[in-house]
Write a protein that binds this DNA or RNA. Structure first.
Length: 738
RNA sequence: GCCGGGGUGGCGAAAUGGUAGACGCAGGGGACUUAAAAUCCCCCGGGGGCAACCCCAUCUGGGUUCGAAUCCCAGCCCCGGCACCA
């Protein structure tokens, strides 16, 4: 039970030890009621504004964690926490309507200063596709109210349909397609095995087979089901739809290659122009009509494989001859006039399933009342705290451990006062972290989640650095929550992190280092041996920050030696010369200050450190004695990397205040960075033949004159005519001879 | 399959149109030392040459350019994400 305080203490110890400069006066602990009270408040804000709802939908169930998971927490079919293959279950769960924000979450990305890779990950995850919702009349099935209702069932991807799926006493089967132009080629339909209309469509003769298939699919975990390479399977239901374009009756099948979670869970199959449908139709001997012809093909050119490229329509009645692009719009419009189509944008992004059947987590602050329904716990009764329990392990039932604590869940309805039951699910821990940055500046305040004035001063976050593994988890959730709070007028910005950079991964002996996968580099013993500063410096030095790097144990010697030499250069402070800096060294110093000042904000840490090493080499070159004026400015430059050492050196240099107290960052003088002599590369026909030392800003004519004196240049000019001279002042002179 | 990021010495890497390999690791040689450590100096992509120098070299092949690691086209390989998404 007291695991969490212990973990927190250990993290805190390590972070302090490594010299992380955090404001320890503003910490949050998401497991404490003082914090999760406001997580619950946040839930209620969304609930009261229609952004949180309880609904039944196919959800991911991890049989090992024994809880449901959000889509974002399923990695290639495996549970993000424990790598167990997840199953699909249909249980009523609490969802946040993040899919309402799909378009804005996508749009804002374009202008955001975030790592490209992170933006792309979000873009793919949101998965916008343009197309149409088409409605296929179902033959021989009465559109009873129940069926109509089950067929209109909410689908959070895309906007809900506006037209009831029955027309002229016919039940309509809705499908989403990006290729409405190929509707004349739809020769059969496929429903996901879980589709609510499967029962109604199945004829008695097929029932056993259909049920057996559904059962088999139900038992399959998502990894097995989504395996692309496996052979397509499916079963005919015996039912038929009418193709609204051709009027033909086409069979309705169920197959597990159609997923309930995407679109409407049903497709029109166009085997001629979709690879998956082609494979399925070939296997089950279904017709494969051609409705698009590439240049040089005619309506009867046989299809050896699905043709998905551009072309013009064929076998499509009045639409024959239209290019695919034009046909998409025209056919959608034609069908929509009959109430059988609507242009539609579909998103892969699903609503965020936030309820969890665990003990740990903030209880969802809702009371279920027979009379009043789901009633929010009034703000003044927050937090709803977790009861102490003996056994907090979840079980197979899909019901939270809190449901075993009768004295906790039995309560009265805040509205009518009748006996009622608390919600026993807790919220996803990703909800805790989706808003913590809002809480940080306001941790002193008990009365609000975040104070408006303080929030305006401190937020949004200027620069956020984290791992890209959170691209579609934390980072997407935090954007959504911020956007929702903006719309509810709690915030005046809608994006939480102005700048985001994904750091690279540290790899050691082939394995990656990450919070969840374990530390392949254990800091404590390294700090023990070399000190925190050396460790920090090495981590920053071993590769570009945004790409990570290969941690080699021996490599730490470089930064260690550097710091050692730095110390020895400065430390008998009395031994430092007190004269002016050597002019050469001074120039190098100003160049170094410039480079470090410029590169640190760009996360160019490895090259900044290299520059400082170079500078120290120059200072010590030939065993020369440094002056104070040469080394003192280097101390603040190294301070962000090596705070302990810098502080100590600063103090030994006679400063009473902490180096971090004042504005100690050195300034560079642009005039002092310029070289008075430069090395000019002299090329003949693009090949370097000599280098010459010349004064900076030498004119082309003078440079040419000087270059001609070089025997190795002259050799190549002998007897040849200089046809062209390219002169890049202070860098290069290229003589083109012919 | 699609989308990102990459591919440069023995190794980690610099250089984003102008002297490829800064800085560092590992390696070699030298000075100082009784010795070692530390420190300092020198060498360190490949080949040729007594040398001056020359040739080759940034995944491969083409191209643009006076000049390409860098820009363009085609391909190969590695890493990461998504993936039967209709």
């Amino acid at each position: 039970m007291d695991l969490i305080p212990r973990n927190v203490a250990n993290f805190t110890r390590q972070l302090r030890r490594i010299g992380g400069m955090f404001d320890w006066d503003h910490t949050v602990d998401t497991t404490q009621p003082e914090y999760y009270r406001w997580t619950q408040w946040l839930f209620l804000q969304l609930f009261r504004n229609g952004l949180a709802e309880r609904k039944e939908a196919p959800v991911n169930w991890c049989p090992s964690c024994m809880t449901v998971l959000a889509n974002e927490q399923v990695m290639a079919g495996l549970c993000e926490r424990c790598d167990t293959p997840v199953e699909q279950r249909r249980i009523a769960q609490w969802f946040f309507r993040i899919s309402d924000y799909a378009e804005r979450l996508l749009d804002n990305l374009r202008e955001m200063d975030w790592s490209e890779t992170t933006k792309k990950a979000q873009e793919n995850w949101i998965g916008r596709s343009e197309g149409a919702l088409l409605r296929f009349p179902v033959l021989g099935v009465e559109p009873t109210p129940e069926l109509v209702e089950s067929a209109t069932e909410e689908s959070d991807a895309g906007e809900g349909s506006t037209v009831a799926p029955s027309i002229d006493d016919e039940l309509l089967l809705e499908v989403f397609t990006t290729r409405p132009d190929t509707v004349f080629g739809a020769s059969y339909m496929v429903l996901a095995p879980e589709h609510p209309l499967v029962d109604a469509l199945t004829i008695p003769e097929q029932r056993d087979e259909v049920e057996a298939y559904r059962e088999r699919v139900r038992k399959m975990d998502m990894v097995a089901r989504k395996k692309v390479e496996k052979e397509k399977t499916g079963v005919f239901t015996g039912g038929y739809c009418r193709n609204p374009a051709t009027g033909q009756e086409i069979p309705v099948w169920i197959a597990d290659y159609v997923l309930m979670e995407y679109g409407t869970g049903a497709i029109m199959a166009v085997p001629g122009h979709d690879e998956r449908d082609f494979e399925f139709a070939s296997r089950f001997d279904l017709p494969i009509p051609r409705v698009v012809a590439a240049p040089g093909e005619d309506p009867d050119t046989p299809l050896e494989e699905a043709y998905v490229g551009p072309g013009h329509l064929v076998n499509s009645g009045e639409f024959d001859g239209l290019e695919v692009d034009e046909a998409i719009g025209q056919i959608t419009e034609w069908l929509s006039e009959q109430g059988l189509a609507e242009a539609r944008v579909n998103y892969r992004l699903h609503d965020w399933c936030i309820s969890r059947q665990r003990y740990w987590g903030p209880p969802i602050p809702i009371v279920h009342c027979d009379a009043c329904g789901a009633v929010p716990v009034p703000d003044d009764q927050l937090p709803v705290t977790l009861p102490r329990v003996e056994d907090f392990r979840p079980d197979e039932s899909g019901v939270s451990p809190l449901a075993r604590v009768r004295e906790w869940y039995e309560t009265e309805c805040p509205e009518c006062g009748e006996p009622a039951r608390r919600e026993t699910d807790v919220s996803d821990t990703f909800l805790d972290s989706a808003w913590y940055f809002l809480r940080y500046p306001s941790t002193d305040l008990d009365g609000v989640a975040f104070d408006p004035a303080i929030t305006r001063t401190w937020l949004p976050v200027d620069c956020y650095i984290g791992g890209n593994e959170h691209a579609v988890l934390h980072l997407l959730y935090a954007r959504f929550i911020t956007m929702a709070l903006h719309d509810l007028e709690w915030l005046d910005f809608e994006e939480p992190f102005s700048r985001f950079r994904a750091h690279g991964l540290i790899v050691r002996e082939g394995s990656k280092m990450s919070k969840s996968k374990g530390n392949v580099v254990v800091p404590d013993p390294i700090i023990e041996e070399y000190g925190a500063d050396t460790f920090r410096l090495y981590l920053m030095f071993l590769g570009p920050f945004e790409e990570g790097g290969d941690y080699r144990d021996a490599g730490i010697q470089g930064p260690f030696g550097f710091l050692k030499r730095l110390w020895e250069t400065v430390v008998p402070v009395d031994a430092l010369g007190d004269g002016p800096p050597d002019p050469e060294v001074e120039r190098k110093l100003h160049q170094t200050i410039e480079q470090v000042t410029r590169q640190v904000p760009e996360l160019g840490y490895n090259t900044s450190i290299a520059a400082m090493m170079e500078y120290l080499n120059a200072v010590r070159s030939g065993g020369r004695q440094a002056t104070r004026s040469e080394v003192e400015p280097l101390v603040p430059l190294i301070a962000p990397f090596c705070p302990h050492l810098a502080e100590e050196l600063w103090s030994r240099l006679g400063h009473d205040e902490s180096i971090f107290q004042g504005a100690n960052w050195p300034a560079w003088d642009p005039e002092k960075t310029v070289e008075d002599t430069v090395t000019l590369a002299v090329q003949v026909n693009g090949k370097v033949r000599a280098t010459v030392e010349i004064p900076a800003d030498t004119s082309e004519a003078e440079a040419l004159e000087r270059a001609r004196q070089e025997p190795n240049v002259n050799r190549y000019l002998d007897g040849a005519e200089i046809r062209r001279v390219i002169y890049v002042p202070d860098r290069l002179l290229n003589l083109v001879v012919g």
